[in-house]
Simulated assay, not measured.
Amino acid sequence: MSARGGAVEFSGKVALVTGAANGIGAGVARRLAAAGASVVVADVDDVQGKAVADEVNGVFVHCDVSDPRQSEVAVATAVERFGGLDFAVLNAGIGTGFGLGDDFDAERYRKVMGINLDGVVYGVHAALAALKKRGGGRIVATASMAGLMAMPMDPLYGANKAAVVGLVRGLGPVLAADGVTVNAVCPSFADTAIITGFKATLESAGMPVMSVDDVVDAFVAVLRDGKAGECWFVQAGRPSAPFTFPNPPGPRTATGERVALGRDPLITKEN
């Protein structure tokens, strides 16, 4: 049990991890398997994905998350091989690497949005029925600090990660009614393939680059202990925790009273 209460353990559970052939996804798969979970490793990298699945005594499934049918197959594999699904870690993602000027690439844009945003939408949709059959479960999506703050060096990446944050916040109270907890993990720069092209620039600017293990620690904490709709930040030098969103200006009645359409527990003040 953690200090926040209601902690979830992993022994005997079944987890689907997308983007699990490398980096954060592989780290999460290894950590969950070491804690006693059965893991479905889903990725488009067949060679490395199978290697990770063999390492964790799990099963590999080829999965392009931008195709909703492939997410459905991944969930079905978990159910067929291990009897159900308790956790869906929707981690697959790629960098953008272009802007909206002369370097804009419409085909690449659709691919990036298809993986980073649509992949989460399709993954949630595919997993829900299986999670509900188990009496509930947990969904964790990989967002980014770029979804919580401006990302001038890659605004399109910031846009799709901000969309994941908004999706998780909106789904949180809805899915909680069915016993499904949905969260996002929002890491800063971690030592994965996404930052390969600018890692040296980050380091020369003094920006800490976190290890994959640091980010995996946060995923484990969220899977154990996350509350509905929380989006946890992950930054070097400070403990991970749910981000507290400021409250935007809300509608007022003719007499000046604030209209309440449902309170978000992560908001700090009334406006």
Score class of each variant (00 low, 15 high):
61 V>Q: 02
4 R>L: 15
238 R>Y: 04
155 P>F: 05
219 F>G: 02
49 G>Q: 05
185 V>T: 01
269 K>N: 13
179 G>C: 12
234 V>S: 02
137 G>Y: 00
93 G>I: 05
207 M>S: 06
86 D>W: 08
30 R>Y: 06
265 P>E: 10
136 G>Q: 10
129 A>W: 02
119 G>H: 05
21 A>E: 05
218 A>I: 00
212 V>T: 11
207 M>Q: 08
169 R>F: 05
52 V>C: 10
7 A>E: 13
146 A>I: 06
232 W>T: 06
1 M>L: 14
169 R>Y: 02
14 V>M: 06
186 C>T: 03
26 A>P: 06
110 R>V: 12
145 M>I: 13
101 G>D: 10
175 L>E: 07
125 H>F: 06
155 P>A: 08
86 D>L: 13
254 A>F: 04
247 N>Y: 07
268 T>Q: 13
242 P>S: 15
192 T>D: 06
181 T>H: 10
110 R>L: 12
154 D>S: 14
185 V>P: 01
43 D>N: 04
114 G>I: 01
178 D>K: 10
205 A>D: 08
233 F>M: 04
181 T>Y: 10
138 R>W: 03
217 D>I: 03
6 G>E: 12
173 P>Q: 08
9 E>T: 15
80 E>F: 03
177 A>V: 15
144 S>H: 01
113 M>L: 11
101 G>N: 03
249 P>Y: 05
161 K>Y: 08
259 V>K: 05
10 F>C: 00
23 G>W: 00
135 G>H: 09
108 R>C: 12
189 F>K: 07
67 D>I: 14
66 S>R: 06
163 A>S: 09
258 R>H: 05
68 P>D: 09
38 S>F: 07
90 L>T: 09
7 A>P: 00
80 E>W: 07
9 E>R: 15
226 G>H: 00
141 A>Y: 07
181 T>S: 14
123 G>T: 12
147 G>A: 14
9 E>D: 12
216 V>C: 02
83 G>A: 07
13 K>E: 01
252 R>W: 02
53 A>F: 03
252 R>E: 08
42 A>M: 12
48 Q>D: 08
163 A>M: 04
32 L>S: 10
244 T>Y: 06
241 A>T: 01
205 A>C: 05
32 L>C: 07
9 E>N: 14
7 A>C: 15
149 M>Y: 10
137 G>C: 07
191 D>E: 05
97 G>A: 15
62 H>I: 03
42 A>K: 01
19 G>K: 02
119 G>W: 00
8 V>D: 05
241 A>K: 04
196 T>V: 11
222 V>K: 00
127 A>D: 02
30 R>A: 14
186 C>G: 12
190 A>T: 14
35 A>T: 01
168 V>Y: 00
170 G>R: 08
25 G>L: 06
214 D>K: 08
